[in-house]
């Protein structure tokens, strides 16, 4: 058995894969959240930003990469969950206490992760493959994604569902981001508190940022 294949089939190797793919999507959601903040600036800024991204030919490569990474993360995660359900066949009749227990975020990664995957599909159907409006700025015709977003973010049920999913994604990141450091072996007594703080803050910023946008549109646009 070659070193690589044994590395990838080992539990630690799989965790490395989880962490590396997690970095890609953690960065993606942060950038996506910051970019979407242009909704506050206005229709032209938002549409120009969207047009700049989608008109770049590299977009297909990047999209394919993101989808592949997400599916890889999901499948690897699933194999670990299946293994772990086999290696812990029975739980205790009493729930453990304090530091001998595990946090809600860490225990529910498979559920928050599944919800995230379902949301990504729903999200693409709603926006990327949703109704296409057009608008022209300075002679350039482009998709008026702003109009669609404003429409969607005025549906109370959509906004509520969106907020709930963002909270679930926040939970996923809350355990996930700080966990990346530990899995990759980036650990030092002097900096570990910072890594945890960074991971928790990252999760809160992404979730709060994404939730603020539909709320802003719903109440102020």
């Amino acid at each position: 058995m070659s070193a690589n294949s044994s590395f990838l089939t080992s539990t630690i190797g799989k965790k490395y894969l989880m962490a590396l793919t997690a970095i890609v999507w953690s960065l993606f959601v942060m950038v996506h959240m910051i970019g979407n903040m242009l909704i506050v600036v206005g229709a032209e800024a938002y549409n120009n930003y969207s047009h700049a991204l989608t008109s770049n030919p590299m977009i297909y490569l990047i999209e394919a990469f993101l989808v592949a990474v997400l599916l890889f993360h999901a499948v690897t995660g699933l194999t670990l969950v299946v293994r772990n359900s086999r290696t812990k066949p029975k739980f205790y009749s009493v729930t453990p206490m304090r530091e001998k227990s595990a946090s809600i975020a860490s225990r529910t990664m498979i559920y928050t992760g599944t919800a995230t995957l379902a949301f990504v599909i729903w999200h693409l159907i709603t926006f990327k493959f949703g109704p296409t409006y057009f608008v022209t700025y300075n002679g350039v015709e482009m998709r008026d994604i702003y109009k669609l977003v404003i429409e969607k973010f005025h549906e109370p049920l959509y906004v509520a569902g969106y907020a709930v999913v963002m909270i679930l994604i926040g939970f996923h990141l809350f355990h996930g981001v700080q966990s990346i450091f530990q899995t990759l072996g980036i650990s030092h007594p002097r900096y570990n508190k910072f890594f945890k703080f960074f991971g928790y803050t990252y999760a809160v910023v992404v979730a709060a940022g994404f939730i603020s946008q539909p709320l802003f549109v719903f109440f102020a646009r």
Partner: peptide, 28 residues
């Protein structure tokens, strides 16, 4: 047939000798 680590940290909480999670990072 031991499981895979998901960095929950209850192991270190339960350890009677206070073995630190930093060891798991070192193992990785």
């Amino acid at each position: 047939d031991f499981g895979a680590c998901t960095n929950m940290g209850s192991c270190a909480g339960a350890c009677p000798k206070d073995i630190s999670l930093e060891n798991i990072a070192r193992l990785n």
